[in-house]
Write a protein that binds this DNA or RNA. Structure first.
Lengths: 208, 208
DNA sequence: TGTAATACCGACCAACCGGTCGCTATACAA
DNA sequence: TTGTATAGCGACCGGTTGGTCGGTATTACA
């Protein structure tokens, strides 16, 4: 096998294991030795590939976390179909994955933000960047929805984005407890209610 | 001074300092020595009053955290005035406090849940209990609102409670970043929008 | 004033932390 | 086959962790 290819394969394997452990036990609560034990690897090998634990984690963020958020929360709302339906399906799918996750420790990004906030500025910058990318993409999806006539012109796109992100991050924390499925169902029902309030209003639609 | 009174005063002082440090640096990232340094106290004194670090933290939860949540998030919505107004004011005030907090590390309860979830079942039980109390009180406030004619009869009280808790917990995490004030404003605006959708509908109110 | 309980002190412990370093094992190019 | 760069090894280091323990200082009460 090509040398650089093998190197990348090893590093990838280390990062996947690292993300899993950091997510489940927390960054500060997971020692380098823990990661190495899981990998059946030596310390020398670790520090041959990464210059520090922090550097290892930052590479995990950039290589794995960013891609994860993209796949689950950004790409699904990029289409030109009815924006509110896209958002609804996207959240539905994301939460369903969480429900079926045997061991759910909450929204990965939100967990790390909580852990690093006020403690490690360098890591926080990387995490906040992901948050920003998500926000920007949500805002433009909503504006696209307005342009395409699916969303009321007077809706504040930035406000909706902040609200949606808040709701999602919060419910993911709530769902780590017992009966995540019931909470997901109730949450999604209220989310649809909220999304409906953003629709283009017709003269007759809301008379009850 | 009475002996037991002095003991309680000392323990109270220790717990207040402990909560501050655990909140700002995280539980696992704060050593007992850190707490003792802040208190100018010895290890012997600490372990004379508390049998372990974990025990110390659980007492902090029961004595300080529970009361805090009660004061900020439960009592303000207990009245018989318009329920949705009470909720709106309660969230507004709670977030305003967060904005003015020089060093904000997010919603205390939510931070600790994130830190202990899957790592310490005993502590999690105590934290989940607070969450449950909050939820129960929100649900009964909403049902009271329905009874008093402020909220639509068909509204799912449990669903609204989960949604409101999610949104609050999420926005508190989002607000730790830059410009918390702007995010608060946008969030509250959307929250009012959502709360409005729960009101008793009249034939003319929603024609636009 | 004597005494017993409580409050507090800080040296000390084993276990663990992130990181270093001198070493070997392997793989490819000449 | 040999030389050289990369991959991987694990003992070891200084520092920190939660917790212990033998001691002293302070207090309340007889």
């Amino acid at each position: 096998m090509d040398k650089t290819l093998k190197r990348m394969a090893t590093m990838q394997r280390m990062q996947v294991t690292g993300l899993y452990l950091f997510y489940s036990k927390g960054y500060y609560n997971t020692s380098v030795d823990d990661v190495l034990k899981e990998l059946s690897m030596s310390k020398g090998a670790f520090y041959h590939h990464f210059k520090s634990k922090e550097d290892f984690f930052i590479q995990i963020i950039e290589n794995l976390l960013v891609r994860k958020i993209y796949t689950v929360l950004i790409e699904p709302i990029e289409g030109h179909e009815h924006t509110l339906d896209l958002i609804n399906s996207c959240f539905e799918d994301a939460l369903e994955t969480a429900v079926h996750n045997e061991l759910d420790y909450g929204f990965v990004l939100s967990n790390f933000i909580n852990e690093f906030n006020g403690r490690n500025e360098r890591v926080m910058k990387h995490l906040n960047n992901i948050l920003k990318v998500w926000e920007v993409n949500l805002v433009s999806a909503i504006q696209r929805g307005k342009f395409n006539g699916y969303i009321n012109r007077h809706v504040d796109a930035e406000g909706v984005a902040v609200f949606l992100m808040s709701a999602y991050m919060g419910v993911r924390t709530l769902m780590v407890e017992i009966t995540p499925s019931a909470r997901k169902y109730r949450f999604m029902s209220q989310l649809r209610n909220y999304l409906k309030s953003l629709e283009v209003k017709t003269a007759t639609a809301n008379i009850s």
